[in-house]
Amino acid sequence: MKDGYELVYKRPDTLLSKRMHYCPGCFHSTMHKIIMEVVDEMGIAEETIGVSPVGCSVFAYDYMDIDFQQAAHGRACAVATGIKRSLPDKFVFTYQGDGDLAAIGTAETIHSCNRGENFTIFFINNAIYGMTGGQMAPTTLEGQKTSTSPYGRDVKHVGHPLRMAEMVSQLPGVAYCERLVLNTPANVRKAKKSIKKAFDIQKQGLGMTFLEVVSNCPSGWKCSPVQSLDFVGENMLKYYPLGVKKDVTANSN
């Protein structure tokens, strides 16, 4: 380091130095990074247990230096329920993609939210099945071309994209529900604050905290990482509006 300069930003310590397998520009890596930054800042690495899904982020446990459990496809919320009930003092989170949470695991997600289980769900919504080659997901936008909807998603035939954050915010067991995006440095900083808030609410035991992240998939969308930011801004955020959908702590402040 040069003289007269001070460190402003470095890689979080709990994010292992192993190279992540994600495609260049994927927000999965950004999300891993900021979750670990929050864990570092709160000093809870020893008390945090993650549950990884099936999907692109199945190897999340390889990159985060915390305890982890890998769940069967879609069952991360059920596994996290068991972990949190047996170890109520630990911070528990699930990290799930849209194929895992909004397709095969919808029942587990809705019911664990409805029961008000006291853990955090990170839902990464990139509107496509990235891992298996870009097939149509429940969250794929109307008219969006994927490998299984080559003429664009036809809502008359396959239904409308699922807005999970709005859906679970209706449930009484949910304490905090917000939709985030990571497309600019300002939004990444904002997302970090929301993750911190989610862990704080979990500590107070107020109920389920659900954070949906509007993500990108440069490989699945067949564009460059920078072009994928434009798609997020122009198309994704119109259908998936950002903001806090529910916050039980809002009135007490």
Binding site: Y5, L7, Y9, R189
Partner: peptide, 17 residues
Amino acid sequence: ANCAVICPDAAITVYRK
């Protein structure tokens, strides 16, 4: 530090005067 905040792979370290 905008570059480091957005960097998905945490490959950037930033120093300031």
